[in-house]
Computed example of a mutant assay.
Amino acid sequence: MRFGSRVVTVGAVAGVAVLGLAGPALAHVEVSADKTTAGAENVTLTFNGEAESSDAGIESERVVLPTGIAPSGVTLVKAPAGWTFTATADGFTVGGKALKVGVDAVWKVRIAKLPDGETRLSFKTLETYSDGEVVRWIEIQEQGKDEPDNPAPLVTLKPGPSTAATTPSVAPSSVAPPSVAPSSAAPVVAEPAADDSGSSSWWIWVVIAVVLAAVAGFVVLRRGRSGSSDVNS
């Protein structure tokens, strides 16, 4: 009986030890989105930083944004009392007075627009405790592989409507346009119409000239006859 009791006691202690070691590994920083379609606008992300330290409280959370989301497109929606939001070059930080030991850090931000064409968004997060300890949740979770020890918070999205689906495409016509053979004749160039007002009256001047010539001849002839008559008389 005494041997059996010892076995049970050792087993119980070992079980508690295993659970104690497994406890911190279960803590994560998780993220969820209220809209899960790529390209969605005004999306609220809710982060939950699970407390894992038994000696210190969470003091701040620094998030590195994935490619396609600019810090300028992120605004704070909610954070623990007294915490503030600060944009950084590659993301943002929320932090302030350290939370009580064992209290999770929960905060929400609004994303102006999720990237188009992306279905897995990783938000690398550095969780700082009041004793100076920094837990880095920065390992990328790859699809189809085991979760890493310190996985970065991950949002899985559904594909958004493709450009081809929203913009009707015009299929090229299989019928070639009729070809126009080049004309061998020289191109006809329209010339300005000539003013016929002068050319249409030329015959009038000819008639006048003929009449004047006839009159002059007649006068000359009369004078010649008159002179001849005077000589004979």
Score class of each variant (00 low, 15 high):
residue 62 R to G: 10
residue 196 D to E: 11
residue 115 P to A: 01
residue 147 E to Y: 09
residue 97 K to C: 02
residue 153 P to N: 10
residue 176 A to N: 09
residue 118 E to W: 00
residue 146 D to E: 14
residue 129 Y to F: 15
residue 170 V to D: 01
residue 136 R to P: 12
residue 65 L to N: 07
residue 110 R to W: 01
residue 144 G to V: 01
residue 59 E to T: 08
residue 96 G to M: 04
residue 184 S to W: 09
residue 140 I to N: 08
residue 111 I to V: 15
residue 150 N to G: 10
residue 159 P to E: 02
residue 96 G to F: 09
residue 67 T to H: 08
residue 84 T to F: 06
residue 188 V to G: 05
residue 72 S to M: 01
residue 114 L to Y: 03
residue 135 V to Y: 12
residue 98 A to L: 06
residue 163 T to Y: 01
residue 74 V to T: 05
residue 165 A to Y: 02
residue 152 A to G: 10
residue 80 P to N: 06
residue 96 G to A: 00
residue 104 D to S: 14
residue 101 V to M: 07
residue 153 P to M: 12
residue 184 S to V: 14
residue 105 A to M: 15
residue 175 V to F: 08
residue 89 A to D: 14
residue 158 K to A: 03
residue 165 A to M: 03
residue 89 A to T: 12
residue 201 S to N: 13
residue 148 P to F: 13
residue 130 S to Y: 03
residue 203 W to S: 09
residue 123 F to W: 15
residue 110 R to K: 14
residue 161 P to E: 02
residue 69 I to W: 03
residue 66 P to L: 02
residue 61 E to W: 10
residue 138 I to Y: 12
residue 179 S to N: 05
residue 106 V to P: 02
residue 101 V to H: 06
residue 112 A to W: 00
residue 200 S to H: 06
residue 170 V to A: 06
residue 64 V to W: 09
residue 181 A to I: 11
residue 90 D to S: 13
residue 121 L to W: 08
residue 197 S to T: 15
residue 159 P to I: 00
residue 125 T to W: 13
residue 145 K to N: 07
residue 157 L to A: 05
residue 168 P to N: 00
residue 188 V to L: 08
residue 87 A to N: 05
residue 136 R to I: 08
residue 171 A to M: 07
residue 193 A to C: 04
residue 110 R to D: 08
residue 193 A to Q: 11
residue 158 K to P: 00
residue 172 P to K: 13
residue 200 S to Q: 14
residue 80 P to L: 07
residue 132 G to D: 08
residue 107 W to M: 05
residue 66 P to E: 05
residue 139 E to T: 11
residue 154 L to I: 12
residue 89 A to V: 04
residue 63 V to M: 12
residue 205 W to D: 10
residue 73 G to Y: 02
residue 174 S to R: 13
residue 107 W to V: 03
residue 109 V to H: 01
residue 109 V to D: 04
residue 157 L to E: 04
residue 189 V to T: 09
residue 183 S to Y: 04
residue 89 A to G: 07
residue 91 G to L: 09
residue 74 V to F: 03
residue 139 E to K: 11
